[in-house]
Amino acid sequence: MNIFRLCGDLSHLLAILLLLFKIWKTRSCAGISGKTQLLFTIVYTARYLDLFTSFVSVYNSVMKIVFLTASYGTLYLMFYKFKPTYDHNHDSFRILYLIVPALVLSFIIVHVYTVMEILWTFSIYLEAVAIMPQLFMVSRTGEAETITSHYLFALGSYRALYILNWIYRYYTEDFLDWITIMAGIVQTILYCDFFYLYITKVLKGKRLSLP
């Protein structure tokens, strides 16, 4: 554990809790992509199956359980409790265009051919692009609520901090995992436009709206 990794995890946790807080407080999931939330739930489910097979640390297991619970909770709020507020007309990104290539790639570029390993690799690839329906939704509606912007910023920062963590681990442990690194870089690049808008608008107290 290093400071970048810890900040990355906390940023990720903050993002997930911010989203739940926003939905619960406003009693609405307007502006949130249910498809992105569904993809993240698939990501966590595929990746954290190792909860049953390997133990790393209490911290590790607790965080995995929190991420899983929160993502299923978010789906419950979006597709059941506050379903009437879900803006599905603007959430029109075709997620099979993300799931199928991620699945195919996880059979092609993978360390070891076992079910757990392929599921883990699939989760890494899918996570890299899972935010696309949400970003597509923001671009279609042309705006995002401030709290949604904070959510996206925290979620994007998490993988950027992980990149610093991987650089640090390369120097201290002399090890690189190219699958996570390349996927992490793609994931972070997808947020760049948003980061720019966040810094130039939201941090100056303005609402995030596209020109």
Partner: peptide, 10 residues
């Protein structure tokens, strides 16, 4: 088993 090293991450 070197590539398992990063699987302590979330």
């Amino acid at each position: 088993e070197g590539h398992y090293i990063f699987k302590d991450e979330l």
